[in-house]
Design a binder for these strands. Structure first.
Lengths: 334, 334
DNA sequence: CTGAAAGCGCTTACAG
DNA sequence: CTGAAAGCGCTTACAG
């Protein structure tokens, strides 16, 4: 392969100066239509490929957006990532997705790497721990960055935060369980002491209080297998429980899996609700009622605010909460 | 924020020339340990951040690897992506993950964009269709690229291919069903006419032939919901079926979901096997027997071969098949 | 082991 | 509407 052609080659082929080629590349209005056509044709003829590194160096804007995710194996995050990437691609930005697997050390390294690559902006669904390093990596260049779903304590007033209104979500979910006649409602999953756990629990607590009911709380990992095992211990320890709100859909799906195997009948004897409304909710038995966070909308909002920040220098407000709704399916009606 | 410091600032602060700083950055052996320390310290002091765009421009190696995936919502691909990224990160490469959602148009655009960004190499799990454009985008710069899992027809001899040995997988899975006493074994899922469907079917067909059994084949989408609905029609149309091999785990999990709801008893009356061995196999009811492709190993093999190609110019052989194994769980033993 | 100089492929004012 | 020139921040031979 001979040396990759440059705008100089294009300019020569098209019989214009390289500035003109550059302007065509940027879609400038000040290039005559006829020259634009000639230049485009020349590019096609000699197989020109735009070199973004050069452009980035000169203009210090890479057109690259970093997305750092704490758990890419959770379908919820995957759906968010896919939506965000689609939207950004439409706007001419490429997305670099990095998975930190809840490892804060890795998170700091990934962010540092993305910053070196000159990302124009960053979306972070953070892992907890090591906050100082993570934020230092971010602060080193002043790259616009938004945190989503979870909030790092140290980052208030520095990293704008966008998330679904989990408190509202757990409120309407718990109200729904009450209206379905549940008398003993448990909350399952979510790691103790995490802000996001408390948020998702808060509506549950206030609704129970309003109805004079006592909370039953079993915290733990947000996984299917935790859901399965908790369903078992719930049954032996609190046999009176007839409704559960789960930290997320994975936990709820684990509960349903246990019920399918050992009973009680989900939907009938035990009403189950998850949070996130991932696609798998449709295919469980019975289909899972869940608090829908409208992931595509959340992704689009995040992308829009980030792009405004990047292109116009206007940072979003410190906290944005998006409304949620309850998608009722058979697991809570019966 | 004042202008981001450059190696010139570091050099000044450390009292050396900028070449020396550059050598330190590259970990060159020819810098005295004592100067190395001084330079590193200077970097830390003034908050220096490496500018990779500049380095890329000069050295034409970006340290960026593109991963283009046809379906990021399938946990199988997510696990592959996560493994690949971890391995590459260890080697100092950042991964750009792009999802094409089975859209070949999008695939061509994504690849073109990655190439513009100067990725050092590319891993492609292709969407079918539009092959010419996809390959043209790839060929435009001669970027080393490997296709995984699926193979584009036009790409033979041009895009090396790495995949699990699906034929072997379907062979051992079908043998297992036979050894468990199944008399009527069906194959479920996978789109008609796709090479990957035929591969996964081939072992099934040959084992059935060897045992003088007649094949029962229902092709279709590789999703949970397809699995559910196919389980229903299987039961009404072929009630004699006592074993099924599914195109992938999602289909098999759909079948299990149907069985949990309507019977027959999976594992007992109907033995079910999937392919891919994703994590969810552990949490279904009953746990799903599956052909394990050893995703982390596949990811590592792919990464290693790609890096050898990039750094030493040695392309991998045209086809690499990795061995598979059967992970037996309750869905096929009863 | 370290320094001075050229150049990677673009964009960006500035003239004309 | 188009051209000539400078420069973005590195790396890379080449001297010394």
């Amino acid at each position: 392969m001979p040396n990759r052609p440059t705008i100089l080659d294009v300019a020569e082929k098209a019989g214009v100066s390289k500035s003109t080629v550059s302007l065509v590349l940027q879609g400038s209005k000040s290039v005559k239509e006829s020259t634009r056509v000639v230049v485009r044709q020349a590019m096609a003829d000699i197989g020109y490929v735009y070199n973004r590194s050069a452009a980035t160096l000169r203009s210090s804007s890479s057109g690259l957006i970093g997305l750092v995710i704490n758990d890419m194996r959770n379908p919820f995050f995957t759906e968010f990532a896919a939506s965000l990437q689609m939207y950004l691609a439409d706007q001419g930005y490429a997305t670099v997705i990095a998975n930190t697997d809840e490892d804060p050390k890795l998170q700091a390294r990934m962010i540092a790497s993305l910053v070196e690559h000159g990302v124009s902006g960053l979306v972070l669904s953070p892992s907890y721990g090591n906050e100082t390093e993570t934020l230092a990596a971010l602060a080193s260049t002043g790259t616009p960055a938004i945190q989503v779903f979870r909030r790092l304590d140290l980052a208030t007033g520095f990293l704008p935060f966008i998330a679904p209104d989990y408190e509202q979500g757990s409120t309407i979910a718990t109200e729904h369980l009450v209206s379905q006649g549940c008398k003993n409602i448990a909350f399952l999953g979510g790691l103790e002491g995490r802000p996001v756990t408390h948020e998702r629990m808060s509506g549950y607590l206030s609704v129970l209080k309003a109805h004079g009911m006592a909370p039953i709380i079993l915290t733990g990992e947000a996984t299917r297998s935790f859901g399965r095992s908790m369903a078992a211990s719930l049954r032996s320890t609190y046999p009176e429980v007839d409704g559960v709100l789960c930290f997320n859909d994975l936990v709820a799906l684990g509960v349903l899996a246990h019920c399918a195997e050992h009973g009680p009948k989900a939907g009938k004897q035990l009403k189950v609700i998850g949070i996130d409304d991932i696609e798998d909710c449709l295919d469980s038995f019975p289909p899972l009622t869940s608090v829908s966070c409208n992931i595509p909308e959340l992704a689009e909002t995040t992308a829009k605010k980030l792009l405004v920040w990047i292109t116009e220098g206007v940072a979003p407000e410190d906290t944005t909460r998006l409304p949620v709704s309850l998608t009722c399916r058979a697991s809570s009606i019966g």
